[in-house]
Write a protein that binds this DNA or RNA. Sequence first.
DNA 1: GTGAAAGCGCTAACAG
DNA 2: CTGTTAGCGCTTTCAC
Lengths: 331, 331
Amino acid sequence: MNIKDIANKCNLSVATISRVINNDPKVADSTRKKVLSVIDKYKFVPNITGRSLRTQKSNKILVLLPTMSNQFYSEIIQGIEETAEEKGYAILVAVTNLQEHQEIKYLHMLRMKHVDGCISLFNTIEADAITSLAKNYPFVQCCEPTMNADVSSVEINNRQAVYDVVKQFIDKGHKTIGMISGDYYKTSELGRETGYQDALRDYGIKFDKNLVVKNFYRYEDGAIGAKKLMAYKPRPTAIVCASDSLALGATSYLKSQGIKVGVDVCVMGFDNTSITTYTSPTLSSINQPRYDLGKESFKLLYEKLQDINSVNKKIILPFQIIHRESTGCDN
Amino acid sequence: MNIKDIANKCNLSVATISRVINNDPKVADSTRKKVLSVIDKYKFVPNITGRSLRTQKSNKILVLLPTMSNQFYSEIIQGIEETAEEKGYAILVAVTNLQEHQEIKYLHMLRMKHVDGCISLFNTIEADAITSLAKNYPFVQCCEPTMNADVSSVEINNRQAVYDVVKQFIDKGHKTIGMISGDYYKTSELGRETGYQDALRDYGIKFDKNLVVKNFYRYEDGAIGAKKLMAYKPRPTAIVCASDSLALGATSYLKSQGIKVGVDVCVMGFDNTSITTYTSPTLSSINQPRYDLGKESFKLLYEKLQDINSVNKKIILPFQIIHRESTGCDN
DNA sequence: GTGAAAGCGCTAACAG
DNA sequence: CTGTTAGCGCTTTCAC
C-alpha cells in the first residue's frame, strides 16, 4: 500500500494525495475528505524513506551515548527529546560503549543522511575529525566537548565546580585532600583535576600527585581509590570524586574500614544522580543541570539544522554544590 | 557527491560503482582498484536512504525502552547490540517514558520501513495491537510480554522467582512477609505477586492484601512501602520487593527507624543491578540473565527477519536468587 | 484545484 | 566484465 495505490482508489493523482498528506491548503475540501477517508480505511502510512530521499531530510536526530549504564544521561536525553519533539524531530539513541568503531559506525548515519543531526555525549575520535564533522553536518557536543575542536557545545564549568568544593574543604580546615578520578583524559575530567590543583595552589597547599587516583568510573574503582588514599600519610580527611559511582565505591570502602564518612573523612561526589539520597550516609554531590544541558544542546543543534554555517557557540551552564551527610551536611 | 559523480570521475557506469560498493565479485580487479581510490579520494559514502528505498530494508532494528533511568536495561541492550552486529544490524534505541503516543510514534518506524524490526522492553498498547504488529513486522518482546498477545518473547519465570524467595523465607521461620510492588499491572509484576500469593497459600500462610504495597518503582516508593508495612501488626520480618530501587528505598527507611536490615527485617530486591553490592547492607536480589535476555531476543527477531511467518516462540530463561547482607547473607 | 512528470540515490535485471 | 535502464515512494515544479 503506497501513495499510488491510494491515488488509484481515489481516482486522483499521487500529487493530490501527497498534498493532502502534507496539509497543502490548495486542495478542495471535498477532495481532502475523500482522500483522508481512504487513507484511514487502508491504514496507509507514507513511506518515510521515499520522503527522506526526496526531501533530503529525515526529521530525526541521533544522540550518541557512551554507555547505557550511567543514570546521569537519562535526564539529559529527556531534555533533548522534549525540546526536539516541539520542533518535530524524533530522537534516536545509539550506544558506543566507548568503542571508536561503534562511534564511527553511528556517525555515518549523519553522512548517509539517515539523521539530520547529532548530539554527542562523548567522543573518542580526534579533534580534527570533530571539527570537520561539525563543519559539514549539524553536530553538537554535550557535557564533553572535544579539546581544540571547533564545534558547538554545552557543558558546566567543571574546573570551577571542583575548585569551589576544594576551597570549601580548605576553608573548613582540611589540610590533606584526595581526589578519585577517571583515566579517560577528557575535557570534563581534566577540568575537574585542574580545579583541584588550582584550588590547592591558590590556598597554599602543595600538590602531590599521589593524592590523585585515576582509574575507571565503576564502583570498585572508587573503593580501590579510597583504599589507596587511606594509605597516604597523613591520612586525607576529604575526598573529591569525579562521579557519584566513584564516591559510592569510596564510602563503601571507608565504612568497611570503620571510618566514619562525613565525620572522619568527607566525600564529595559528582553529577548528583538520584542514588545520592538513598545511600547511607547520603552523598554530597555537584549537580549538573541535566535537563537544561539536553535542552540547550538541542537548541544549538537546531541553529545548525537551520543554517549549517551559523557560528559555533560554547555554552556554560551553572552547577550547584549539594551538601549531604557525606560532607557532614553543613554549608 | 553521489554514486553518479563517482561514476563520472571514473568514466564508468553507476552500475559498476554500485557493484564495487557491494563487493560484487564480477568486477575487474583493476576497475575495482580505480573505483576504490576515487571513492577514497572524495570520501564518498553511499546514501543509505537511496539504498533502503531500493532494497526495502534498512539493516537497522529498533529497541523500545520505557526509560533511560533504569540500569537494568543497560546489559540487555548490550546483549542485543552485540548479537545484532554479528548479523550486520545496527540498533537504535528509542525511549517512550511510558507514554503511549511516544510508543506509537516510534513503532511507526516499523511500518514506515525505517527499521527492519523491533525489540520492545515495555509496551503500553493493547494485546490485539501487539498481535497484529507481530504478525506483520518482525517484533519481539523482552522481559515484559503483553498478556494474551501472540508474539515472540523472552523473559524469566517471575512467578517462580518470588515463589522461591518466599518459600525460603517461610522455611527460615518467617511468618509475616510483606511485598512492595509496582502498580503497572504488567506481566512481570503480576507474575511476581502471584508467586508471593502462591507460596503463602502452598505453605499455609493466610494472604492479606494489606501486606502488598503497590506504587511506582522509585526509591521513595520503596521507603513509603516499608513505612506502611512496618505499621502492620504483627510487624513483618521479611519484605520481597519487585525491584532493587524499591528494596533500596525500603532499607533506607528501615535504617532510619533503627531497624536492622538482614537481622530484624530481611529485604529481597529484584534484578540484581550493580548497586546491590555497594549499599549497606549489601542487597540480596533476584538476578535476571540480562545479557542473554538481550541476546535471545535478537535471535528470535532474526528468525522473524528471515521469515515473518515463522512461529512465535516464548522463551523462559533461568534466574538466580542472590543472598547478601539484607537477608542475613545465608543460603 | 488538480495532474503530469521529473528526480532524490541507489540496486538489479537484462543485454551485450 | 560492464552498461543501460527501470523503478523503489515520495515531493514539487510546471502546466492547465
